[in-house]
Each structure stands twice: as C-alpha cells, then as structure tokens.
Amino acid sequence: MIDLLIAFLLLSGSAFALVAAIGIVRMPDLFIRMHAASKAGTLGAGLILLGVAVLANDASVSVRAVIAIVFIMLTAPIAAHLLGRAAYKTGVPLWQKSELDEWNAREEK
C-alpha cells in the first residue's frame, strides 16, 4: 500500500515536471511561460521530494527532503516575482493576444 503511494508520488511528480518542460517551450510569451515553470515545476519537484521523504523511512533523511521542499516553496515565488518584474521593466513584449496589462493600465491613470 505504501509502495503504491510512493510510486504515485514519484510518477506524478515527474509527470508535472514534464508538463512544466513542455509548457516552457510551447507557451507564447515569457510571462505565460513563467506559469508553467514556477507552478508546475515547483509542484513536480515537491511531489518527488515528498515521495523520497516517505520512501526513506528514516528521520534524518526525511527531514532533509522536507527541508528541501520548504526551501523550494519559499524561494520559487520570490525568484519568479523578481524575474517577471525585471523582464516587464526592460520591455519584454507581451503576447499579441494578451487582453489585459494591469501594470500599464495602472500607470496610465
């Protein structure tokens, strides 16, 4: 039973990682690509590390895996926010079909 749970965590984690990788190649502009990279990618790595933590069955190993999960979950949004802000400021173009640019709308008011 626990084996099935571990296999599910590992395989679904790698599936999310693959989806993130496909998303980062197929999506039309940087800001949409960031959705794939920072959400699906973080979830994939988190699920795999969780699977390793369950599989290890040893406190010192599980704690390390959990620390890695916490660290990734804390830093991924910060990194994505900084990168998106920097890219927008330096004029990386939005997708042509984008309908709403909230930052630009706010500054024009």
Partner: peptide
Amino acid sequence: PSMADRVLALDLLTTLAIAFVAIVAV
C-alpha cells in the same frame, strides 16, 4: 528570445535537477 527566457529556463532546470538528484539518492 530574451535573456529573461534563458534565466527562466535555468531556474526550472535547477528545480528539475534537485528532483533528479533526490531520485538518484533513492
């Protein structure tokens, strides 16, 4: 096309490398 795209790819690559290294540990 832009430098931010490459940095984003590098960021995702690091995250995937962490997951891969964890599986190698197992």
